[in-house]
Amino acid sequence: MSELATLPTATPSARSGSSITFDNVSKSYGEGLHAVEHVDFKVEAGEFFSLLGPSGCGKTTTLRMVAGFERPSAGRVLLGDEDITTTKPARRPVNLVFQDYALFPHMTVGDNVAFGLKVKGLARREVSERVTDALTSMRLTALADRRPAQLSGGQRQRVALARALVNRPKALLLDEPLGALDLKLRREMQLELGRLHRSTGTTFLYVTHDQEEALTLSDRIAVMNQGRIDQLADPRSLYERPSSVFVAGFIGTSNLLVLQQPQRVGEYHVSVLGDGDRLVAPTSVHQGQLQVTVRPERIYLHPTEDAAVAEHHSTVRGVVAEIVYVGSTTHVTVDLPTGEHLEVHELSNDSDLKAITRGSKVRLSWGPDCTHVIGPVAAP
């Protein structure tokens, strides 16, 4: 078992993190190049908060404005109650962990971890005690005399974390720190980061483009798109109730459909497609054509077209176009008569999968609460 798993969880009174506030922050580079526009949110003290989005969306620029390596063109950045917008990087009680770790190659692991404390002029005894504690918590004690070139990627990652946390920062800033690791090691380090966060109570501000990583680690996530925040919510809300087509498509796999001329039937919107096919969604405040989404794992695949379906469930017929086995689940793409297609994720041991092949005519169905209404269809 990881030694991190045995560390105590920080109590509210023991939490050392500070809140981070972005007060209407923008960052521009020259005329017309807006990296970040009117970002306005607060990271709570002790929270694991992620900035998620594609390359070039502004998430790293946002992080660097907390570290002090970028200065906002407008707005303020606060750490706790202190305005740090113009504070020099060295005077900010935060630490930044990079993807490439930025370790000193000529120093041992112990010296790398101790470097920041020595620069601050701490007493030798305190430096030794804090370094020993950091190496123990990160399972690096046996590696203290090695140099970075003698370490694996995961070990170098832990050295970078130890070097950052030994300074007891008010916030730890992490810029895609797991991006250079292979899939298995990345997942192991995700678990360690989660345990480390719970044990220290430090505020974590985390940048990633990996949706699964953000969902796994975060208390809340801000999804960024073209310099702005599209949605800020907890992982479950982002996944199950996306507020935009961009968020629905970026967070996991989502099927986007349009309810044409929906009728109100009791507590549901119903769009009749003909021949028994229909799309059903919970009622909303929106009117007219509605953009809706349904997740692939919420759809049930019936191996025949004439399968019976519950009255208020969405149901559509289609033809199987692709069947992709991915281990525990199988992904099935079904072409609809409308020219659209739906992706369905079924457990690979489902007996109904054995009855279908490419070209099979099938029926799909899902419950009304599995359909999420994003909003009116956007004008072209």
Rank of each mutant, 00 (worst) to 15 (best):
S137V: 09
R228H: 03
M138K: 05
S137H: 14
L290K: 05
G32W: 09
V272Q: 14
H209P: 06
L301E: 07
D40Y: 01
R358C: 12
R187H: 04
A142E: 14
L52W: 02
R228L: 02
L135C: 07
S18Y: 09
D275H: 14
A144L: 02
P12G: 11
V113Q: 12
P337H: 09
T304A: 11
T202C: 14
S199A: 15
L232Y: 02
F250R: 05
Y239D: 00
R163I: 04
H286T: 02
R358P: 00
R147D: 01
A164L: 00
E340D: 15
L259W: 02
I251N: 12
I229W: 04
L232G: 06
R130H: 09
T293F: 01
G249T: 05
S128R: 15
P8S: 10
N349I: 07
R241E: 14
H269M: 09
V207M: 11
T200I: 11
M224L: 15
L79F: 03
G276D: 10
P177Y: 05
V316L: 14
V320K: 03
Q190V: 06
R195N: 10
R158I: 08
K27R: 15
A378H: 12
E176V: 02
A379I: 10
P177K: 08
Q99Y: 06
V270Q: 13
S16F: 00
A67W: 01
H331G: 00
D352F: 11
E346P: 00
A35T: 12
A307Q: 04
T203R: 11
L232H: 04
Q263D: 15
E129Q: 15
A90G: 05
G249P: 01
T202E: 05
P368H: 09
M189W: 04
T283G: 08
S152I: 10
T136D: 13
F250C: 06
T141A: 14
K120E: 12
